[in-house]
């Protein structure tokens, strides 16, 4: 009995927390690695063209994305460029409906300033893009952002 008591007196009465930061760091890294912000499968090819005069949009909530490109699964969707909104490929006449759906998600004051970010593959021709733009005009969503990445100057 006395043996045990002696040993206990020497020990500290605090829990050793030195491993806690490691655990938290592990959590941190786990979240940093696994966080996927947009749970969206892009069904079309996306090689975004480069340009120099980029502008950044301030209000990200106002942006809705539209993807245009050759379908990745050509056996299912064919090889002609298609338009993807949300998770599905849609045809041009459905765009008006989609824009209205997206607009309804926004607070009432912001509905006029909805911006469509067009992520268009390099190899798409102007024809489909012009069709989409005509539909966007019909839906009165006239602010368009041609998504693009920074071009490095070679001067």
């Amino acid at each position: 009995m006395s043996k045990f008591r002696k040993k206990k007196l020497g020990g500290s009465d605090q829990i050793n927390t030195s491993a806690l930061p490691d655990i938290i760091f592990m959590l941190l890294f786990f979240f940093m690695v696994t966080t996927v912000l947009r749970e969206q499968d892009v069904l079309v090819d996306q090689k975004i063209p480069q340009s120099s005069q980029l502008q950044k949009l301030q209000n990200k909530t106002l942006i809705s994305y539209i993807f245009i490109g050759k379908p990745k699964n050509t056996s299912l969707y064919g090889s002609e460029p298609r338009v993807q909104a949300n998770d599905v490929l849609i045809s041009s006449p459905e765009i008006v409906q989609w824009v209205n759906q997206e607009r309804d998600k926004l607070p009432e004051a912001d509905r006029g300033s909805i911006t469509i970010s067009m992520k268009v593959d390099k190899d798409v021709k102007m024809g489909p893009i012009s069709d989409v733009q005509t539909e966007l005009r019909n839906a009165d969503a006239r602010k368009v952002l041609y998504a693009s990445t920074k071009k490095l100057d070679k001067e």
């Binding site: 979240f31 966080t35 980029l54 502008q55 990200k60 942006i63 992520k119 005009r137 602010k143 920074k150």
Partner: peptide
């Protein structure tokens, strides 16, 4: 951890702005 959770955004919201003509 909280800083990263809050500030991480997709960096691809850059592009060329255009305003289409009215219908």
């Amino acid at each position: 951890l909280i800083f990263f959770l809050v500030t991480t955004t997709i960096a691809s919201d850059k592009g060329i702005l255009n305003v289409l003509p009215p219908k």
